[in-house]
Design a protein around this nucleic acid. Structure first.
Lengths: 357, 357
DNA sequence: AGGCACGTTGTGTGCGCACACAACAACAAA
DNA sequence: TTTGTTGTTGTGTGCGCACACAACGTGCCT
């Protein structure tokens, strides 16, 4: 039933060794023999048995992962996806080494990148949050012929194998649609970037762009947009002060769009200010946000599928390096709209990944 | 590095054959030897190499799938998930045989069930849409020791391995939340069951129940609910007549909830009636619905993840039968909220399943 | 003619495991 | 004692493939 190398060899009148050389393009096969073997292969519809292949090669694959510290619950979820993929592919000889950068600056990131280059892994998974350092690293990987997969932050990088993550522009549009849907009268929508270094965060800019563009296209309600970058968001008192001032300045604010996972910080302020009347749209199913979502103090959360990002990141490396499969260069994950009624299912998130085969 | 049977045998002072007997619980091992082997196994943290195992057994697995005719695009998506899973596990010897029932009644369904029992497959995947026939079939499978996985319609069936699909009650609640969010004034919400046999459709009842209960809990807006079963929905003229009458009778209708994938039929009528002012919530990303969603004539679609249902159905059988893994009996899939801005990502749906390993 | 290099082809071994079968001991029945 | 039975244990083979290595033929140079 199943076609084996042996069958091809027999039908082509050669030995299995020759078929093997053809399959793996190892050369040293006479042109006419090669043609004959290839013909028989396609005739019989040969498909390599990956099981047997993996067993026979018995090779180890070192994958280095450069992401951020999983003390942040968003990155913990990404790491979870990576670890599940590792588990699912362990018997293919996949071994993962983690490197955690911190948010305080590119130094640690660059140092880890250097360590990885010394380690000479077979592939790299990276969240390219620091633009210049990431580009340098990708270049080095290319020179060493190390395939590299990017997650979480989209960037122009021709040397990378693929990007897996969200479409930031589109997520801004989505947030706009949700606010637009819930706001009836003419009003103001507040867009808040709670980020230390907004200049370096291209994805925040993309979100804002998508958000604004939605309202220029849909002006049946005449909603005004005010955006604000807040860099010192760690001190609640200061944050309250900033937000309070904004709400005074624009008394007709009806909705808030927080462009990253820090919506809970904003809502904390709204509680202090006794403002329960505002729509809030944010990102990411981290515990702090979920608490507010369940209490109806956040209306919508957009899920970036962090677990899936990690999982698919590794799986794409496996598909590329071990299984010789074609990899899609740009893989946008769904923008899940999460409300109280469906958050449980996204939170568990266990269903999609038991595909250990 | 990796612990093999050979290593365990050496450390326990027995042969690999004995270790094999312990691992597979084949018996005929002296009690003290068995204990010793088990101790060594846990000491060394032995994990069976599934790759090698699958290769060695070289067994074929026949899986029979009893679902509905894939000429319906919803069922075509379920079939797609099944086929992808088949492809991903083909080299484990998994072979799938499809049986398609039709919606006209349980006869074909029962006949297929009988054929499957004759075929004696190793496992069965079924959408138990006809209650009595399904129960009979599950009972027969149990007697023959054939594990059976249910998808799409939840039912009380202690003999089944697991259920994978939506939580209908919860999806009703979700629909209610979405309508509630978009309706501002006091108004009426219309719940429409477009189904030939509503009596036999437990999931429709569950959806209605969840829908109504949401509004009894959230009565800040005083929304009235009117529900209607429509059995002859195939004739557009007749359907228009029914819906037009309802809208006349309840002039303050602000939103519609169509409890299955037939929202497009309702919206077709609304177009004829020149009613563009109504919110519409429906189910399933079939082409007809997507067209209306993109044209902003359907506001929200709830995705039931049909591809995933099929895929996970097979994968759970593989996990259970081939890999001896524990299977979670109740696996609710996420209730994806789909709007114009994120429908592309759900429609492609290719991302989640390339996990061919 | 002898020696060597090189292109081409076939053979053998092992990956880790499952399973059939052989081997052996202990004991009971004839 | 012999024979058969049963419980227990070890050995050998093959799953399909990858890869090292041996073997062979050809042509070239000395």
């Amino acid at each position: 039933m199943t076609v084996r190398i042996k069958d091809i060899a027999a039908k082509a009148g050669v030995s299995t060794g020759t078929v093997d050389r053809v399959i793996h393009k190892r050369g040293n096969v006479r042109a006419d023999v090669q043609a004959k073997v290839e013909q028989v292969m396609s005739e019989l519809g040969y498909r390599r048995n990956l099981i047997a292949s993996a067993l026979a090669t018995n090779r180890k694959w070192k994958i280095a992962c450069l992401i951020f510290d999983p003390s942040d619950s968003y990155w913990r979820q990404i790491k979870e996806g990576i670890d599940r993929a590792q588990e699912a592919t362990a018997h293919y000889g996949v071994r993962i080494r983690h490197y955690f950068a911190d948010r305080f600056g590119p130094d640690m990131f660059a140092r880890h990148a250097a360590s990885i280059l010394e380690e000479r892994p077979d592939a790299v998974l990276m969240a390219p949050s620091f633009l210049r350092e990431s580009l340098d690293f990708i270049k080095s990987c290319n020179e060493l012929d190390i395939p590299i997969v990017l997650i979480n932050s989209e960037m122009e990088a021709p040397g990378a194998l693929c990007y897996i993550g969200q479409n930031s522009y589109q997520s801004g549009q989505l947030a706009a649609r949700l606010l637009h849907f819930g706001i009836n009268q003419e009003a103001t929508a507040l867009l808040l970037n709670l980020e230390a270094d907004t200049q370096n965060s291209q994805h925040l800019k993309d979100k804002e762009c998508g958000f604004r563009e939605y309202f220029t296209k849909n002006h049946d309600k005449e909603i005004k947009i005010v955006s604000e970058n807040i860099t010192n968001f760690d001190d609640p008192v200061q944050l309250c002060c900033i937000i309070g001032k904004l709400l005074n300045e624009y008394p007709d604010v009806a909705g808030l769009f927080v462009t990253n996972s820090r919506a809970f910080k904003v809502v904390g302020c709204l509680e202090r200010l006794n403002r329960n009347d505002l729509l809030v749209v944010g990102f990411d199913l981290i515990p702090e946000n979920l608490t507010y979502l369940r209490a109806n103090k956040i209306d919508f959360l957009i899920n970036q599928n962090p677990v899936m990002q990690g999982y698919l990141g590794i799986m794409n490396i496996v598909n590329h390096s071990l299984l010789d499969k074609e990899v899609v260069p740009l893989q946008y994950l769904p923008l899940d709209i999460v409300v109280t009624e469906n958050c449980d299912y996204y939170e568990q998130n266990s269903y999609a990944l038991p595909m250990v085969v």
